[in-house]
C-alpha cells in the first residue's frame, strides 16, 4: 500500500518536472529570459543584476536548477503589462473562475451521471436514444458556438439574461450552462458505456440468480464497478477547474484565469502564461493523485497490487 502511494506521488512529481522543463525549454528557446521576466523597459543595471542573480552566465544545467529553485520560492516573474508579480495577478482571478467552474462541475455530475445510468438501464428505448443523441450533440457543438447561440436566444431575442460581464449572479447563468451541458454529455456517454459493460458481467447474472432484487444488485454491484471509469473523467474535469474555462470566459467576458491567459498570450506576457501553465499542471497532478486514491478505495485490488503494478 505504502509503495503504491509512493509510486503515485512519484508519477505526479515527474509530471510537474516535465511541465517545468517544458516551460524552461520554450522560455530559453524563444527569448532572453531577462527581458521576458523583467520586461523590455527594465533599466540595464536591473537586467545585469537579474542576469547575475539568475546565473544566466552559468552553464545551462546550473541555470535549469536555479530556475527550478526560483519556482519553489514562488518567484514566477512579473507581468510585462503592469509589473506586478504574475502569481498575484493569477491568484486574484481564481475566485471568479471557480465561481463558474464549480457550479458547472456540479451540473455535469448532477445531470451526466444520472442520465448515463438511466440510459444504460433502459437501453434501446426512446429515452436512451434521446440521451445519447443529446450526448453526441453536446460533444460536437463547441462551447463558443453553444455560448453564442444561448446569448442570441436568451439575451438578444428574449432579453431574459445578460450576455456578458460579472455584475450579478444572473451573469453567471449562461456561462455555467454553456460549460455544464458539454461536460454532462461527455459524462453521460461514459457512464452509460461503463454501466453497460458492468451489466453484462457474470457477477450481475449471479446476483440476480441468487435472488437479489434487481435494484439492490444495481446499487451494490453495478454502480460501484461502473464508478471507476466515471471517476477518471470526473477527475479530469476537476483537474481543469482552474483552466477549463478559457473559451467560455472569453465568450462571456468573464474576468477569470482563462480570460487572463488569452489576454496574456496575445500580449506575449510570458511570465503570466508560465505561471498559469504551472498552476494548471499542479491542479492536474493533484486531481490525478486524488483519483488514484479513489481507485484504491473503489477497487482494493489496484492498491494491493493484485492486478499487477496498477496498469
Amino acid at each position: 500500500m505504502a509503495r503504491w502511494f509512493a509510486l503515485r506521488a512519484l508519477r505526479g512529481a515527474l509530471t510537474v518536472a516535465l511541465v517545468v522543463t517544458f516551460a524552461f525549454v520554450v522560455l530559453r528557446m524563444s527569448a532572453d529570459p531577462a527581458l521576458v521576466i523583467l520586461g523590455p523597459e527594465a533599466p540595464p543595471e536591473v537586467i545585469a543584476a537579474f542576469r547575475k542573480s539568475w546565473g544566466l552566465d552559468e552553464p545551462i544545467f546550473v541555470q535549469y536548477l536555479d530556475y527550478v529553485a526560483a519556482i519553489f520560492r514562488g518567484e514566477l516573474g512579473r507581468s510585462m503589462r503592469d509589473g506586478r508579480p504574475a502569481i498575484e495577478l493569477v491568484a486574484e482571478r481564481i475566485p471568479a473562475t471557480l465561481a463558474l467552474t464549480l457550479p458547472a462541475l456540479a451540473l455535469k455530475i448532477g445531470i451526466g451521471i444520472p442520465a448515463g445510468v438511466w440510459a444504460s438501464l433502459h437501453r434501446g428505448t426512446l429515452v436512451d436514444r434521446a440521451v445519447m443523441s443529446l450526448a453526441v450533440a453536446g460533444f460536437t457543438v463547441p462551447s463558443f458556438v453553444l455560448g453564442l447561440v444561448l446569448v442570441l436566444v436568451f439575451s438578444v431575442k428574449l432579453g431574459w439574461l445578460p450576455s456578458g460581464g460579472q455584475d450579478t449572479w444572473t451573469h453567471a447563468i449562461l456561462p455555467i450552462v454553456t460549460m455544464g451541458v458539454g461536460g454532462a454529455a461527455v459524462l453521460a456517454r461514459f457512464t452509460r458505456s461503463a454501466m453497460l459493460e458492468v451489466l453484462g458481467q457474470p457477477y450481475m447474472r449471479t446476483a440476480s440468480a441468487k435472488g437479489l432484487p434487481w435494484a439492490r444488485a444495481i446499487r451494490d454491484h453495478a454502480l460501484p464497478n461502473a464508478a471507476i471509469p466515471t471517476v477518471t473523467i470526473v477527475g479530469f474535469m476537476v483537474g481543469t477547474l482552474i483552466a477549463g474555462a478559457v473559451v467560455v470566459e472569453s465568450v462571456f467576458s468573464w474576468p477569470g484565469v482563462g480570460r487572463l491567459l488569452v489576454v496574456a498570450v496575445s500580449n506575449r506576457d510570458l511570465a503570466v502564461v508560465q505561471c498559469i501553465l504551472l498552476l494548471v499542471a499542479a491542479t492536474m497532478v493533484a486531481s490525478n493523485f486524488v483519483v488514484d486514491l479513489l481507485y484504491g478505495l473503489l477497487d482494493p485490488r489496484l492498491a494491493t497490487g493484485a492486478r499487477g503494478a496498477g496498469h
Partner: peptide, 24 residues
C-alpha cells in the same frame, strides 16, 4: 509511455496557448 501519460494528463488547449505565446 511517460510522454504519452504526460500529454494525456495536460489540457491540450493550455499547452497550445503557451507555445503560441512563446513563439508567435
Amino acid at each position: 509511455l511517460m510522454l504519452a501519460d504526460f500529454q494525456a494528463s495536460m489540457p491540450f488547449l493550455i499547452m497550445a496557448l503557451s507555445v503560441l505565446a512563446f513563439f508567435g
